[in-house]
Nucleic acid binder design. Sequence first.
DNA 1: ATTGTAATTGAGAATCAGTTGCAATTATAA
DNA 2: TTATAATTGCAACTGATTCTCAATTACAAT
Lengths: 148, 148
Amino acid sequence: MKRMEDRVFREFLQKKGLKFTKERAAILKGVFSARGHFDPDDLLIKMRGKGIRVSKASIYRTLPLLLESGLIEQVLKVDKHAHYEHTFGRGHHDHLICLKCGKVIPLYSRKLEKLQENLCRKEKFKCLTHTLEIRGYCLRCNSKSGLS
Amino acid sequence: MKRMEDRVFREFLQKKGLKFTKERAAILKGVFSARGHFDPDDLLIKMRGKGIRVSKASIYRTLPLLLESGLIEQVLKVDKHAHYEHTFGRGHHDHLICLKCGKVIPLYSRKLEKLQENLCRKEKFKCLTHTLEIRGYCLRCNSKSGLS
DNA sequence: ATTGTAATTGAGAATCAGTTGCAATTATAA
DNA sequence: TTATAATTGCAACTGATTCTCAATTACAAT
Ligand SMILES: [Mn+2]
Ligand SMILES: [Mn+2]
Ligand SMILES: [Zn+2]
Ligand SMILES: [Zn+2]
């Protein structure tokens, strides 16, 4: 059974006059078999672990295509590198990031999304995407941190 | 007349057992004489232009201190480098970023901030900071872009 | 004012994510 | 099957940020 995301990506590429190569297919598969967030290097290592040979360059070249096709989203820049997650089949969400343990908690609020849209409308700004990152301490880390 | 931010920074440093050096003072001054956003290199160039000699290293070492002291905020990672702005005396705000012309429009909504706080409370997440970046097209770029 | 000491500095080397040039390979439409 | 433009891996390259280290300096305690 062909996965739906293959279809989407294939059509996206076709529309741009680009090729659906085995490398791109493999990267797509690798991306979609990730449970949560990943960065380009995670992906490379995971694929190599499974014996799939793709170059770093191809990964870096393919991720922007997946991004453009809407199959993945760039989540944030942790430390100094980009993180992604696939969003096809899942909904958009924002992130709470624990500064102590690094946990990333998804957050979705319809109300919040609507409010943002309204604010943009008011500014006459055509909103395409957004990233909201809230940093602080998760429940566990906050209770452990001594302060009452 | 001594600037208020000098005082704040000095006290911050003292509390941490760090020194208020002339380099740090100069960097602080450079930061606060910037109108809007800046990145480390902007700052370096501007200071050199004024004949103030500080090393790149000192700038990169001082910015995190200013961040920690609450005098500046990290705005976002454009391209691949960090951007900052001083927020002392000004309020916190989020950003609308035009993908075409690069314009950055400040956005503040009390309602939005409150909503975020409530959401965090609901998740029992101790929120310290957040960054909201909305990307799309500004009024001017959107009307120019042909699509109706 | 002098001194002791830990913090700081500048310069350049090092690091590291991400990009690029290029020759060999491959998808795909005709 | 062929023509052709797109793609690949590799290694060299960027450019931002961090680090190393010897020389300097702030500043608290004499
Ligand atoms: Mn997520
Ligand atoms: Mn701003
Ligand atoms: Zn945590
Ligand atoms: Zn614009």
